[in-house]
Amino acid sequence: MEKKYEITEKQQAFLEDYIKRKKRFSNPEDLNELIDHLVTDFEHTGNGNISKYLADNSSFIFNFQGSSKNLETSIHWKYQRELWQIFLRFFYKLKYLPYTFFTIFCLYNFFFHLHLQPKTLGFIIISILVILMIISFVLTYHKSKRIRKLTSFKHLFNVMSLPNLTLYAFTSLADFFKENKLLFLIYALIAFGLYISGILLIKNKRKQILEKHKHLLN
């Protein structure tokens, strides 16, 4: 593709300012895509008059649909699927089974051999879960606003919706657990498993996203 014209810095700044004033994007990637399309098209077909070019293409600019809606749903379910995959790995992958057995062993001793009061037991379990929740919150934060606005990064927060559900469910199940320690142990195992899986997923995805979008950090 041969360029007919090279856009000047001033013209590009004008174009970017025009788009930012006329249209809001929740995902910075969509804004970049629109800018790149218009600049490339202007350089190939425009006659150097940026105002006229923008006026001619106003309908495309206004109707340009970002990827957000479809992509958000897709990313949400992708993360949820991956969360389950990591969680289930603890129960069938040879590499992870020692961790699972070790956790079961610790929980079993903790529940049945330490003879703790149900209230104390509940408090300790919930405290650990809250600490894991705080770790996940910290991991879903990034100082760069541009990174935070990315659909793939925003949805990292939602990864913990299922693990957090186990924490919220505790209040309604607390009385039941007082009478049934074995079920409480199973609950704790599932809750720990989901929280750890969520944190592993967030850590992994965060690394991938930052690597993929390192240009946004400059």
């Binding site: 810095e9 990637e29 970049n32 800018i35 990827s67 479809n70 897709s74 992708k78 993929k212 979008h213």
Partner: peptide, 25 residues
């Protein structure tokens, strides 16, 4: 663009961003 975004959302396309001049592609 809606078609590209749909394919991306369906997991059929992946995205790579590169700096071209003063803009991101």
């Amino acid at each position: 663009y809606p078609a590209l975004h749909k394919l991306e959302a369906d997991g059929l396309l992946d995205v790579e961003v590169a700096k071209v001049g003063n803009r991101l592609r």
